[in-house]
């Protein structure tokens, strides 16, 4: 697909970066304010989709984005499982279990570095959801994948 008019391009160039930063903020502050991994990941994906829609992509870009977003999605899932398994492994015999929170007392409540493994899980979920939405969009909106002349 080709790009849109210059008006849309200028607006998208201004706004997409802010949307991306806002998504990262929502992910990182998920344990303190409304939001979290699901919302933040979807916002990050929305920013990337906006820039892709405004500027257009070629078939090679679509293929490389599809591959890299699949890799990001798998790594997000593995990171989430790793946090879960750490709760099982890191504690003494019998004290840990799957998805045990790592050191919830660490840090003062209400600050950014607190709540143990919840921010780590938020980051993993954010990567996973964002990459999933982006790869679905790339496949659904690409021209070369299905209408093969």
């Amino acid at each position: 697909m080709s790009g849109m008019t210059p008006i849309v391009k200028v607006i998208a160039r201004t706004v997409a970066g802010f949307i991306f930063v806002y998504g990262c903020y929502i992910i990182l502050y998920g344990h303190l304010s409304p939001g979290g991994g699901f919302a933040g990941g979807a916002i990050v994906a929305a920013g990337l989709i906006l820039s892709r829609l405004a500027f257009g992509t070629s078939a090679a870009q679509e293929r490389s984005t599809s591959i890299s977003s699949s890799i990001f999605e798998s790594s997000g899932g593995i990171l989430f499982l790793l946090v879960a398994v750490l709760g099982l492994v890191i504690f003494a015999q019998g004290a840990g279990f799957f998805f045990k929170n790592l050191f919830p007392e660490f840090g003062k409540g209400g600050t950014l570095v607190s709540a143990g493994s919840i921010p780590l899980s938020n980051i993993a979920i954010g990567i996973k959801v964002g990459a999933a939405m982006l790869s679905i969009f790339v496949v659904l909106a690409s021209t070369k994948y299905i209408f093969k002349e």
């Binding site: 344990h31 929170n101 919830p104 007392e105 709540a115 143990g116 919840i118 938020n122």
Partner: peptide
């Protein structure tokens, strides 16, 4: 859990 947001907890 240390999380202020109970939904995240």
């Amino acid at each position: 859990t240390g999380a202020v947001n109970r939904v995240a907890a």
